[in-house]
Design a protein around this nucleic acid. Structure first.
Lengths: 168, 168
DNA sequence: TTGAATTTTCAAATATTATTGAAAATATTA
DNA sequence: TAATATTTTCAATAATATTTGAAAATTCAA
């Protein structure tokens, strides 16, 4: 397979992959494009590579920046803005984990803390089932929170070699 | 807060949470409903609790069964079908991990195996950047695959206590 | 400053995904 | 077997999410 075809396949698959994770297709495709491009790209480059409008590129690039997955680059002497993506996949994963933890896990933990205060007699099987679920989620959620914090701070080799010990 | 209000909040939040993960709102809400209900429910119960149509319940319950998160229950003497959900959150998490690994990680690994065959001279910076990305994803993907297999097979207490050692 | 280049915004258009509801299929009981 | 209850399907509809494109805002060089 030729490079151009392979790139196209990668971009399409990364886009489809993203949609399974609640990320819009275009944002994931732009991310793919930045991952595989050695040099920074302009918004026009992305419009052309993905066949999408200026507004679409602009919004999604800014979203990617918000996720910490892309950044603006100033090239001396150039008028236009350029953008690059983090190339180290381990760092990409850590960044995504960090953001999703902040955006989703933390609000979920806040919710269960609140729902834990629900009134009612546990001898009522409905009350009990509800409270058991909430407590189960809280316990596992807090544990996930700590685990993910460890991952976010970890160096790849440290994390991998620690995990390896579990596989034996 | 009263039980009914708390249940409603939990169902709504679980639904919203699902949409961030590429899972449709109704499926996540039905799952929430099954999580917090001590007894099996009929499709009519779910229609009423969530204010949705029969067809919608039916499709989403079957999807949940496909994900291994709900199952049909036969109650002796009852004409209607009943459904329950797994209550143990650790098992729920393992089941979701197992399914997403099969549906997403494995196809992704197949893709990178294929894209690794891309022709081209690595002295070309574009070829090199592409191949580096693909190889990075492959390496981390294979590692994730093993880690998740360990998680899927693990007992909660074993897994937790192993992870604890990393936090120290 | 000015004005050309560039980026950003956002209402409207389009595309995608989810939901309904009624007909068809299936299962159950008498 | 026929009558009835229940489940399933799926075309039509509705709801949601994404994309466009042109106007407004901003930036920058002279």
């Amino acid at each position: 397979m030729k490079l151009e075809e392979a790139k196209q396949q990668f971009i399409n698959s990364w886009g489809a992959f993203g949609t399974n994770w609640g990320i819009n297709r275009t944002m994931a495709q732009i991310h793919a494009l930045l991952l595989i491009n050695p040099d920074p790209l302009t918004q026009d480059d992305m419009m052309e590579a993905l066949n999408i409008s200026r507004g679409n590129v602009n919004m999604n690039v800014r979203d990617l920046i918000g996720w910490g997955l892309a950044e603006r680059v100033i090239l001396p002497g150039e008028r236009k803005e350029y953008f690059t993506g983090e190339k180290d996949i381990w760092k990409v994963v850590k960044q995504i984990v960090k953001e999703r933890k902040k955006r989703e896990l933390e609000p979920m933990l806040q919710l269960v803390d609140k729902l834990e205060q629900t009134e009612g007699d546990r001898r009522d099987r409905h009350v009990k089932a509800f409270m058991d679920t909430i407590e189960g989620i809280k316990k596992l959620g807090k544990y996930a929170d700590k685990t993910l914090d460890t991952l976010i701070k970890a160096e790849e080799h440290w994390f991998v070699s620690n995990m390896m010990k579990m596989f034996k």
